[in-house]
Design a protein around this nucleic acid. Structure first.
Lengths: 236, 236
DNA sequence: TCGATACGAGACGTTCTCGTATCGAAAATG
DNA sequence: CATTTTCGATACGAGAACGTCTCGTATCGA
């Protein structure tokens, strides 16, 4: 497992996002440099990635995906894979990054309560149809077994997501919806942590309850210490 | 990776816990049946297990531990390992079970608050000297990559621990220390989840703060919704 | 038409790992 | 002393996986 040539793949991704002006062709008006030989079949790339998801959905662990299995599942040659990604690590990371970019970016709701419920609900749903459209968080647990990859994955996927949530929480603090005497990161952890814990670390998790997200958010919002009124007259 | 011969290893563990009356020797007064050849060096077993912990502490993932590396680290021949455990799975499981049995069983404090803080603090400390005396939870994330093992590990280690916590919480609910309108399991998740999340999923986690456990517990106990008094006069 | 590139398929060499087998030395019993 | 078992060390076979390479075919630009 090398970990040095991945940057080239990243460069490829980024340059395509910016505007496909990577190849330094002297033709300024031609958006496509008109390469010489047979052009690449773009469907192959998606076929590979979807094949990986299919394998994951069939129970393979992320590290358990072998290049041979991926190639066979996608119906492509191994050389075709290595023509696109320098490394197995690069391929795995590409899959993860793509999964992340597919997710809509944490839409804000009317209240921080509703926003948090939406966040937790998404985690919960990913746990329910477990691995069928496998999400980052599911793999997030498995990826730890691949040492070099987790750091990259964290800074590429998890950190931005957490940062976005932190901003939303900080706004809510300024608006007076949340306690302002605690670190926004900590607040985020207090809301998201329980759902993550139940989703990731609980194989027989009870995440079926469609109201679980709301229950969790409301419980944490309201506090878990017994309200004297409730503790003495809980029947009502 | 076989997964059938583990039961014999479990039988070994259990019988030793019960009272070392496994060997059906007809001598009732002799605790040691006086086997013929050279006796086993009991230090070897601990040397192997401690070597594994050392390797884990040096950054190896649980699945990444190879028998060769373990043998070399412990200064032991591979045959010596296979004379004691039938399988690599059995060896890994033994390590996990032993780690669990080493942990003192969730002592109860004066209040549920103090109990919860103690629970979280133990998780935090395990994250701080990360993997040095590696705890179940740390490996809990890595072990998911080893499919057959996680279920056994969960029911042998995590489930009992969660059950114990649930009982403590249920008691606290009956005493009126905690809200009684929520499932004890859910309550446990709400307290423990954030610390687990920060410990397991955050490589650059900020778990250094020695008051983090208390901060978390108090925050969840008191609720995260803005108290009007605080939100308007937070400067004080 | 021709050169260049992409494609699927698969052989290949290398490395890693598991688990077994063997070897000489050491330590116990009879 | 003879036997038996354990010890560390290491050779070994089997197999999995990575990444490279080749082969014959297909598809583009020139």
């Amino acid at each position: 497992m090398s970990s040095s040539a991945i940057d080239s793949e990243f460069e490829h991704l980024i340059s395509r996002e910016i505007g496909e002006q990577k190849s330094a062709a002297p033709v300024p008006a031609a958006p496509v440099p008109a390469r010489r030989g047979r052009p690449r079949n773009e469907a192959v790339e998606t076929s590979i990635l979807e094949g990986m998801l299919r394998l994951l959905g069939r129970g393979s662990s992320l590290a358990g995906l072998s290049i041979d299995a991926i190639a066979a599942e996608a119906g492509v040659g191994k050389a075709t894979i290595y023509r696109r990604w320098p490394d197995k690590d690069a391929l795995l990371l590409h899959l993860l990054v793509q999964l992340e970019s597919k997710t809509e970016p944490l839409c804000e709701r009317d209240s921080i309560r509703d926003t948090l419920i939406a966040v937790l609900e998404r985690i919960r749903l990913n746990a329910v149809h477990r691995r069928s459209d496998t999400d980052l968080a599911m793999i997030g647990a498995e990826i730890r077994a691949i040492p070099g990859l987790y750091c990259r994955y964290h800074e590429a996927v998890i950190a931005p997501r957490r940062a976005a949530l932190r901003e939303l929480i900080a706004d809510a603090q300024r608006r007076g919806e949340l306690r302002a005497d605690l670190d926004p990161d900590l607040l985020g952890e207090l809301f998201v942590g329980p759902m993550l814990s139940r989703s990731l670390l609980h194989p027989d998790a009870s995440v079926e309850d469609p109201d679980l997200a709301a229950t969790m958010v409301d419980a944490v919002l309201g506090g878990l210490a017994a309200n004297p009124v409730h503790s003495f007259a809980e029947g009502t």
